[in-house]
Simulated scan of single mutants.
Amino acid sequence: MITAIIREIKSEDNKVVAKVIREVLEDLGVPKVGTAYEDASLDHMFENYEQPKADYFVVEDRGKIIGGAGIAPLENYQGNVCELQKMYFLEEARGRGLGAKMMEICLRKAKEYGYEQCYLETMPFMKDAQKLYLASGFEYIESPMGNTGHYSCPVWMLKELS
């Protein structure tokens, strides 16, 4: 049962969102180098998504941010492709259908912006996340697209948004 709300990020959320993402990455044993963990944008998420065709959403449950995800143009790529970015949930958020709801919101927004495809990068051991991505229509691809700087993420997926 979903009791949490999903809303757009606010500037006052920056510190908490960065803490949530880093906590999830640490809990999952993700390398701190070559992943979202070291992204400078992590501490300025609101400002980072204040660009055309980009949005970041947070999941708030009883006043506490427990996860988030966003879309933005795929970095260093020529083409009409967005990237699903920084989709992470604290343990208390998992298993509640929030990932599927967040995915629905992000993909709907990507289509509204007119993107043709949505790309993502993940880790091989993030099997639950990959199940969600596959159920949402993503397919595995052989090599990375663009250059996100996340060279430690060796699993790449793509979804057609037609």
Rank of each mutant, 00 (worst) to 15 (best):
N48F: 09
R108V: 11
C106R: 03
Y113E: 07
V58R: 00
T122N: 00
M87D: 04
I21F: 06
G29K: 08
E139A: 09
I65G: 08
K86Y: 08
R22F: 03
M87W: 05
G67K: 05
Y37R: 02
I141H: 01
E121M: 03
I66S: 04
I9M: 10
A100Y: 14
G146L: 01
E116I: 04
Y113H: 12
P154I: 09
L84H: 07
K127E: 13
E112Q: 14
E38C: 05
A40N: 12
Y49G: 10
E142A: 15
P154W: 00
K53M: 10
D43R: 10
L74Q: 01
G63Y: 04
M102G: 04
K32T: 11
G63D: 05
K101E: 11
I141M: 06
N80H: 01
S143M: 11
G149Y: 01
Q85I: 11
G67D: 07
N147W: 06
C82R: 00
L132A: 11
F57P: 00
L25F: 10
F46I: 04
L161R: 03
V81A: 01
T148I: 00
A4D: 00
N76A: 13
L74E: 01
Y140V: 07
G67E: 06
I5S: 15
G79C: 04
P144A: 10
D61R: 07
Q78D: 15
E38L: 01
M102V: 08
R62D: 14
K53P: 01
V155M: 04
Y88D: 08
D128N: 14
L158S: 02
R96P: 05
E83L: 02
G68V: 05
G146F: 02
Y140L: 15
Q117A: 11
V58A: 03
L84D: 03
E12V: 10
Y113K: 03
G63H: 06
M157I: 05
L98K: 04
V81D: 03
Y49T: 10
V81I: 12
V20H: 05
A93D: 06
P144L: 07
N76K: 12
K32Q: 12
S136I: 08
L158Q: 00
L132P: 06
T122M: 04
Q51K: 15
Q85G: 09
D61P: 01
Y113W: 08
W156P: 02
N147Q: 11
I71Y: 03
G67F: 03
C153T: 09
E160A: 13
E139L: 06
C153F: 08
E50A: 13
V17F: 11
